[in-house]
């Protein structure tokens, strides 16, 4: 009797876990008209070549799921780091892929890369600050971007 009760409990818990884990379907994400997330626009700082990055930031900040966005670009690449709302983190991979596609579609002449990693967020934020203060040369910018791209490729 005790063994029967034990197995019943285990089966119930397992089924609950599976059911709860499989409910959320991957919806398509749409930007909303509501309050867009703040971002640092860099174009009016005289750095004309950050316009793509600003556009990307404007595009992504309209999404509810995105709570923070940073982006940097040069002639060839656009790197975006986003922070996703805690509740939406269950579909992190899907969001990353979708945003990647959307951005690639918007900027076909650039190679786009989207990351949700804490490290990229931090690095890009630093770069943005440096750009805003005009303390970054083109060469250094390219070097940093190369490093960030390399980090994005790394796996355990």
């Amino acid at each position: 009797m005790k063994r029967y009760k034990q197995s019943l409990t285990i089966i119930t818990l397992l089924s609950l876990t599976i059911i709860l884990g499989c409910t959320k379907q991957d919806p398509t994400y749409e930007p909303t008209e509501q309050q867009a997330t703040d971002y640092t626009p860099l174009t009016n700082k005289g750095q004309a070549h950050q316009s793509e990055a600003d556009e990307a930031k404007q595009l992504l900040s309209r999404y509810d799921e995105v709570s923070e966005v940073h982006a940097i670009n040069n002639d060839k690449t656009l790197i975006v780091a986003i922070k996703i709302e805690q509740g939406d983190r269950f579909s992190l991979d899907h969001l990353e892929k979708e945003f990647q596609e959307k951005l690639q579609h918007s900027f076909p002449h650039l190679k786009t890369a989207v990351s949700t990693d804490q490290k990229m967020l931090f690095e890009l934020k630093e770069l943005e600050n440096k750009l805003a203060n005009d303390t970054l040369s083109n060469k250094t910018l390219n070097k940093h971007m190369k490093k960030i791209k390399k980090l994005m490729k790394e796996e355990t």
Binding site: Q118, K147, T156
Partner: peptide, 17 residues
């Protein structure tokens, strides 16, 4: 983990080690 991410060149993926 956060310490390694911020002060060294580790990402969320690689900071585990």
């Amino acid at each position: 983990s956060t310490f390694y991410i911020y002060f060294f060149d580790f990402t969320e993926q690689t900071a585990g080690n």
